[in-house]
């Protein structure tokens, strides 16, 4: 499903985030990438999503060489196949819950009925029905996180990438988030979580835990 072949990533100023990584993730697999801040976990997710290009090596997602795709096609591929959940949620604070969740669908110009159907499913699933017209800046951290998951999920992506998803949540809300992941797992999504939160390390639905340190897989 996802393959990283001898992938390195170096940022401006010579900072090496990933150093010759070769890894693969199977369809429907839930994998936790664990490691300290700056170990290269987020860079790995970014490469899988096609948000950046590797300095060396190749990233193949669902048979597509995403690291070689032009930005236009990489974005199109991401839109159809990948849902991203960010550490800081990356919601647009002045937009409502509904507007944020629908953002990935805006460029698709779908019919109103289809849009409403998908929205109402997400609002129900993530318990946001009564908040749909509230600006996200007025939501609690947990509600914002649920909104971010709903946005990642609205395109029914095959792959969910979550970057430090519980870093800003207390334990109760983190457990709520984990329940959401369990539900996604039951829908046969491939889920890759980058985290150093110990709550994720011995979950029954996690297939593998991979440790990343100094840009290498241990």
């Amino acid at each position: 499903m996802i393959e990283l072949l001898n992938v390195s990533k170096e940022y401006e100023g010579g900072v090496k985030a990933l150093d010759g990584i070769t890894l693969s993730f199977g369809e429907g697999e839930v994998v936790v990438l664990k490691g300290m801040s700056g170990s290269g976990k987020s860079s790995m997710l970014s490469l899988i999503a096609g948000l950046s290009k590797p300095t060396e090596g190749e990233v193949i997602v669902d048979t597509k060489h995403i690291s070689k795709l032009a930005d236009h096609f990489a974005t199109g591929f991401r839109r159809e196949n990948i849902g991203m959940i960010f550490q800081k949620y990356n919601l647009i604070a002045d937009l409502s819950v509904k507007e944020n969740i629908l953002l990935p669908l805006v460029p698709l110009n779908l019919k109103g009925g289809e849009l409403e159907k998908r929205l109402s499913k997400e609002l129900k699933q993530f318990n946001l029905l009564d908040k749909k017209d509230t600006q996200v800046k007025k939501l609690s951290g947990g509600e914002q996180q649920r909104c971010a998951i709903a946005r990642a999920n609205i395109n029914n992506p095959k792959i969910i990438l979550a970057d430090e998803p519980t870093a800003n949540l207390d334990e109760k809300l983190s457990l709520e988030f984990i329940e959401s992941l369990r539900e996604m797992k039951s829908e046969k999504r491939t889920i890759i979580i980058s985290t150093h939160d110990p709550l994720f390390f011995d979950l029954d639905f996690v297939d593998r835990v991979i440790e990343v340190r100094h840009g290498k897989v241990l």
Binding site: A49, L51, D71, H72, T75, G76, R78, R79, E80, M84, F86, N90, L91, I92, L103, P104, V106, P107, R151, A152, N155
Partner: peptide, 16 residues
Amino acid sequence: RREIGVLKAIGWRVGD
């Protein structure tokens, strides 16, 4: 800037 980055991350193309 961040908003444009987010839009791209969730699947907006440059043209969008």
